[in-house]
């Protein structure tokens, strides 16, 4: 491995977070280096989505302890939009529909906001359309979805493809995919995964949050972490995901029970 690759993109230490007074994350440590793909797995309620949303800056969650360094800056000091402009992208588990705003307008507004932040000139409509068309091919998206309202009346598969399209257009450094596989049939899953794989590159890190192993058949991770009760219970390589597929998450409860007895 090159020396550059050893640099941490994202370094989480002792992260604790709560929502409306209920603690969800209880001390997360995670180190993601540039170019790596990390999978975060775990049973429902283990805190996977909370972790994804805290990293993206959703204000419903409060960070109670811990630090998050992102490319050497204190991520927790930044607002959600500043994080996006710094290159963090969250693919939503439930993409939001916005009637009255076209997908094209949404994408162009986002791209220009990011470009302005980076002191780059705004993209003109013709260049923009060319860029979007090339990226739409990547996720096999129909161009007419560009002129429809954002996610309004989109099928589950179309919504998730739209997320990956946004990722492709915004070109983030760190992409967090929150349950991108949920609600997808196997064909849609493959198309979305292929889109993500096409976006893998050395300077980009990807954190894949998923309940099921099947997405990882397509997006093969470098590291797998299992989240349980707000903590990382185990970390390993891609074989850990296969192990989970076979055994389910029940061993976590067994471990927890043992830990409880020992305490």
């Amino acid at each position: 491995m090159s020396g550059k690759k050893e640099n941490s993109m994202l370094e989480i230490k002792g992260l604790c977070a709560s929502v409306e007074g209920t603690t969800i994350l209880r001390g997360i440590d995670l180190d993601v280096k540039a170019g790596e793909v990390h999978a975060i797995m775990g049973p429902n309620g283990s805190g996977k989505s909370t972790l994804a949303n805290v990293l993206a800056g959703r204000e419903d969650y409060s960070v109670d302890a811990g630090t998050v360094q992102y490319n050497g800056i204190d991520l927790l000091e930044l607002s959600a939009d500043e994080r996006a402009c710094e290159g963090i992208f969250l693919a939503f588990q439930y993409p939001v529909s916005i009637p009255g705003i076209s997908n094209a307008y949404f994408l162009r507004t986002a791209l220009n906001a990011v470009r302005r932040y980076r002191d780059e000139s705004e993209v003109d409509p013709v260049d923009f359309l060319e860029l979007v068309r090339s990226k739409m091919d990547l996720v096999g998206m129909d161009e007419k979805l560009l002129h429809r309202a954002v996610n309004d009346g989109f099928s589950g598969g179309e919504k998730k493809r739209n997320e990956i399209l946004q990722m492709a257009v915004l070109d983030p450094k760190l992409a967090i995919l929150d349950e991108t596989d949920s609600g997808l049939d196997i064909d849609a899953l493959r198309i979305v995964a292929e889109g993500v794989n096409a976006l893998r590159k050395e300077e980009r890190s990807i954190v894949v949050v998923t309940h099921y192993q099947r997405l990882l058949d397509y997006i093969v991770p470098d590291h797998v972490h299992v989240l349980s009760d707000g903590k990382i219970a185990r970390s390993g390589d891609k074989s850990l995901a296969l192990e989970l597929e076979k055994e389910g998450y029940s061993w976590l409860q067994a471990d927890d029970a043992k830990a409880g007895n020992n305490a």
Partner: peptide, 29 residues
Amino acid sequence: DENAIFYLRSRGVSVDEARKIMVRAFTSE
């Protein structure tokens, strides 16, 4: 819709602009 505002912000749009976009969406619809 605060959810939609967060969606816009998570794409790099400032909170003020996101709110204006939502007002525009609501009225132009």
